[in-house]
Design a protein around this nucleic acid. Structure first.
Lengths: 239, 239
DNA sequence: ATCCGTTTGAAACGAGTGTTTGAAACGATC
DNA sequence: GATCGTTTCAAACACTCGTTTCAAACGGAT
């Protein structure tokens, strides 16, 4: 009796997950979906394997079967989420460089930030979960996480650094790298929800205004970063 | 025999710690010193109580005796490290507002960032440890940590937000808050060592050039943030 | 020398972690 | 329908975590 109702409850939850995931979900897919959400909400180390498997209506053995280890699961999740973002960035960089050999700083920043902020399309129902996950991973302290993440980011950052250096002639690599890292860091802070969601305890946003606001936030971010980089290299804002 | 040598070894290590801490170190002081360093290096949750007590040549019971719990230890550490920074910020804000009723954005940013970056003086031998600790705490995900930290930051941020709003007339609170949070976030990323120390795996800095470079880094940070805020409100950089 | 509040120390507790195991259940192939 | 590799599951494993306990050591006042 009880096993029957338990199985039924699982079926229902699985169906719910399938709907959220967008298409037929194997255990593997459900594990990845839950991991993206939980890793993004609480961080990698703070999320237990059992929390993931419970949310995915599976059990801990399945993780080791499909991914070998918790770290293997993280690797799979990072690969899955970052691939689309990186491809979009590369595509937009191609587009920019096809139009002009030396794109402006503003164009470069926009081409880097926007694929990160607005990846709602192409990643299941809501990409905001993926957003938060990526942002959270950027700020993770665990060196293993940083390594796995860097392995993915490295695929585009070389080209971006080169393009940025061309857009800012006459500056050494350290300055360019500072600009790039600041951009990456601000994007991370924005996406991780530290800015908007948790925030220093003030009024919490009701979550209702969440359509046009994202575009505004993205604009703010692009403006801030672009202005920061430019004034960094003109060096006249504060001296 | 063995207990004697063990006691001797402890004495030596305690003496070493006392030298590092700058003055006579009770168990309580040694615990705090070790906690600052380890929390800053690995984060709060990732640092076990035993790692702290081992480094301080004490044991776990001492933590609960002196601070009640691990969270109590964190609270004591945050209080101790943030007090000086906040006081310095308040002092410089007083100074600015005494000279002019509406300080410029550049002046405000400088008065906020520099006390954070250059608190080497007044905090034991090397304040860079404290720097990293504070930066790490700013980016911590655990809501308890964020709460404790916010309790300390709140003491100045109200005045800073007001001053920033006056320096940027005609903008709503959301924009001002975005500017403030970006400043805080960038400072945090800078201090936590994510920018410089760990970094995406490229060449690691030898650690030799560590005198004038900090000043340069601080300048870079101030320039970037100031420029970012200003262009955020002129809104012409990318449109 | 005795007492007593303060501080330290070793050991144990219960809860939670990632990982491993071995036996079931499943699904296709012969 | 028996057999095979694949996939799932409950249980156990070894370990670490923060916390608690209780006895011992310390240090000044009586």
């Amino acid at each position: 009796m009880i096993p029957l109702t338990a199985a039924k409850a699982k079926e229902a939850r699985v169906a719910e997950q399938e709907q959220a995931a967008g298409r037929g979900s194997s255990t593997r897919d459900r594990l990845i979906d839950s991991a993206v959400r939980l890793f993004g909400e609480k961080g990698f180390e703070a999320t237990s394997l059992r929390a993931v498997t419970d949310a995915a209506d599976s059990n801990v053995a399945a993780v080791n079967y499909h991914f070998g280890s918790k770290e293997g699961l993280l690797r799979a999740v990072i690969d899955g989420t970052m691939r689309a973002v990186n491809e979009e960035r590369r595509r937009r960089l191609d587009e920019l460089e096809a139009r002009s050999p030396v794109p402006s700083v503003a164009e470069l920043v926009r081409a880097f930030v926007e694929p990160g902020v607005a990846l709602t399309t192409g990643h299941g129902v809501n990409g905001s979960v993926v957003e938060r996950f990526i942002g959270r991973m950027m700020g993770e302290s665990d060196p293993r996480v940083r390594q796995i993440f860097a392995d993915q980011v490295d695929r585009v950052e070389g080209r971006y650094l080169a393009a940025m250096a061309r857009a800012l002639p006459g500056r050494d690599e350290g300055d360019v790298r500072f600009a790039y890292t600041s951009m990456l860091g601000l994007l991370s802070l924005h996406q991780s929800g530290v800015f908007t969601a948790v925030e220093w305890p003030r009024r919490q946003t009701s979550g209702a205004q969440r359509e046009g606001s994202e575009i505004i936030e993205s604009e703010r971010l692009v403006d801030f970063i672009t202005g920061g980089i430019l004034s960094l290299f003109s060096g006249e804002s504060s001296r």
